[in-house]
């Protein structure tokens, strides 16, 4: 038996260490972001002259103003929002229905389909660029946002499907059977009982696909040549010129590009909190 005081001390020490370690990890993970922010507000003339400092002696919003008013960046940005948003939406819809089927039904060829989906994930993307270009070109889908959305959706569906399947697997079958007995068709039971319980899973999938599409560079670079259909990762490259890299503007653009991703996660974070199904079945 330890005295209450002693155990409280131990508890404090335990939680202290706990938070210290989390803080250390967060600092480690966020430091590059901090640096991004720092460089973006550093005036160009002192970027190289001041040496490595944690915070510049002067700060400026010039880089932001330039990026927002005089570059194509807002346009790239909109393109990225459209591409990532639709990719996330389509992928999630497809993954939700496919994942549900995988989780609940036994059907012929299921193994084959699963195997095929896994195989698609094994190829290095570089190998696929040429054939995909050859397929999309005659369809008029190169140099277009639609083409990018289709390609991104196709590439994200397998993983998203397996992710969704694991969420559906976590929801007891009894629930939709009870709903079907209560008077739902299977689809209604899916929509009214299962989907609400899978919101955390859908949110996670949305977030995952959105960020994947948001930061994709390879296809965006290869399938799109015109400025009008470029996404922001491609746009970032335009700050690299023959004569040097405009770090300040590039970082400012980078900070701006973080905003939608952050906003998106803020939006879905309340669904990311798990445990909604607790109490459905025993225990």
């Amino acid at each position: 038996m330890s005295t209450p005081g002693k155990s409280r001390l131990r508890k404090t020490a335990y939680w202290g260490t706990h938070y210290l370690m989390i803080a250390a990890f967060v600092a480690f993970a966020l430091f590059p972001l901090y640096w991004l922010l720092k460089v973006s507000v550093t005036p160009n003339d002192i970027l190289y002259t001041e040496g490595v400092r944690m915070w510049p002696s002067r700060t400026t919003w010039d880089n932001y103003t330039f990026v927002l008013t005089q570059s194509h960046f807002p346009h790239y940005f909109m393109n990225s929002v459209i591409v990532s948003g639709f990719t996330a939406l389509f992928t999630c819809i497809i993954a939700a229905v496919t994942g549900y089927a995988f989780s609940r039904f036994r059907f012929n060829g299921k193994i084959v389909i699963v195997a095929l989906m896994l195989i698609t994930q094994m190829f290095p993307l570089v190998m696929l660029i040429a054939p995909i270009f050859r397929i999309l070109a005659p369809l008029g889908l190169t140099d277009s946002l639609t083409g990018l959305i289709i390609v991104y959706t196709a590439f994200n569906v397998p993983f998203a499907t397996f992710l969704m399947q694991s969420f559906f697997d976590g929801i007891p079958k009894d629930l939709e059977e009870a709903a079907m007995i209560d008077g739902n068709t299977r689809f209604e039971a899916f929509r009214r009982i299962i989907l609400p319980l899978t919101l955390p899973g859908i949110a996670a999938t949305l977030g995952f696909v959105f960020t994947a599409a948001w930061s994709e560079l390879l296809f965006a670079l290869m399938l799109v040549s015109s400025e009008s259909a470029s996404t922001f990762p491609v746009g970032l490259l335009s700050f690299v010129s023959k004569f040097g890299v405009d770090f300040g503007q590039m970082m400012a653009a980078g900070v701006l590009a973080l905003i939608p991703a952050c906003a998106f996660f803020l939006l879905i974070q309340r669904y990311l909190v798990q445990g909604l199904t607790a109490g459905a079945v025993k225990g």
């Binding site: 007891p172 009894d174 629930l175 059977e177 009870a178 709903a179 007995i181 209560d182 009982i193 609400p196 319980l197 909604l276 199904t277 607790a278 109490g279 459905a280 079945v281 025993k282």
Partner: peptide, 13 residues
Amino acid sequence: IAMVFQSYALYPH
């Protein structure tokens, strides 16, 4: 018909 499941299968939400 109505059914009572071993797991109860109450709608958690």
